[in-house]
């Protein structure tokens, strides 16, 4: 990531906020950094208002450091808990009407390809489960049908968390929440399978209990979307506030759900995507 993007114009050093100066001096720019180096540089995410112990906040933090070239990335967000963190993110990001995220991302990607034909520009959608599988389903699915070269990342907390706990398509069967008192009547949508059938060439399911795996999924998804076609990453990001468990238990909840067979890390590559990743790995040596 190039330092020039965030350089402070001469004479303005004193008036910039200390957090910004810290970002310029100690940010991840011009270095090849990843999850392994967290804790040694100023992150692209600043202090945010998400709840203590939020699995979505942790996943967003890990996702941001996994972007292969943040200076050439535009993130498209959606309404939901994550949208409260995006004003604190030092990567270009767009917020539009709820549910429109993959349509906005499509236009953006096409415009960027025309404007910068020789430069890879990554357009990455990061949105909640409600935004992706329910309210924005149509724009998500059609972007996949059309083969748009986008990465779609779902922050799956299995609820509409930001509006006080309604069930989403991604909630588990029987889920009871503040505003779903009767218990959910149908199964969690098998969205990774839907993504494969709809044309995604890379589909991964991960969670922040395995940060290196999460990093690999996000990186691969973005690199493959540059060259091959649409990619989808589903991150399981438990919500202590709506699911009413202790904030300290967010990561153990993931392990328990995995043991119970309700969460399963996974990775699918189409033959073309697999060949491309192999080619990248061989080039790296």
């Amino acid at each position: 990531m190039t330092r020039r993007m965030f350089k402070i114009s001469a004479g303005f050093e004193e008036v910039m906020p200390p957090e910004y100066r810290e970002l310029v001096e100690k940010g991840p720019f011009e270095k090849q950094l990843g999850v392994a180096e967290l804790g040694t540089f100023k992150e692209l995410l600043e202090e945010h208002p998400l709840c203590a112990g939020c699995g979505l906040a942790l996943s967003l933090r890990l996702t941001l450091i996994s972007l292969p070239s943040p200076e050439d990335t535009v993130i498209v967000g959606a309404t939901g808990c994550s949208s409260l963190a995006f004003p604190q993110v030092a990567v270009h990001n767009i917020h539009s009407l709820f549910g429109n995220q993959n349509a906005v991302a499509t236009g953006l990607k096409r415009a960027l390809s025309l404007r910068f034909p020789d430069r890879a520009k990554d357009v990455v959608v990061i949105a909640g489960d409600g935004a992706t599988c329910d309210i924005g389903l149509e724009s998500v699915m059609h972007s996949w049908f059309r083969g748009e070269k986008l990465t779609t990342i779902m922050l799956d907390n299995e609820a509409y968390a930001n509006t006080g706990g309604q069930e989403s398509g991604m909630s588990q069967l029987g889920t009871v929440l503040n505003m779903a008192p009767m218990g959910k009547k149908f199964k969690k949508v098998a969205f990774p399978e839907v993504a494969k059938a709809a044309g995604c060439v890379y589909v991964a399911v991960a969670a922040p209990h395995q940060p290196r795996r999460l990093e690999r999924s996000v990186r691969r998804a973005i690199l493959i979307a540059r060259e091959i076609g649409p990619t989808y990453v589903q991150l399981y990001t438990p919500c202590p506030t709506n699911y009413k468990f202790k904030p300290a238990d967010t990561l153990s909840v993931i392990r328990e759900q995995e043991k119970a067979g309700l969460f399963r890390p996974d990775e699918y590559l189409s033959p073309e995507a697999a060949a491309y990743i192999q080619q990248l790995e061989e080039a790296k040596g």
Binding site: A36, G39, E43, L45, E47, H48, L50, C54, A57, T250
Partner: peptide, 17 residues
């Protein structure tokens, strides 16, 4: 560094090389 990878908040836990 396990704690650093578990913290949902950025720039809280700092590693001294």
């Amino acid at each position: 560094k396990l704690c650093i990878w578990a913290c949902p908040d950025p720039n809280v836990i700092v590693f001294d090389p």
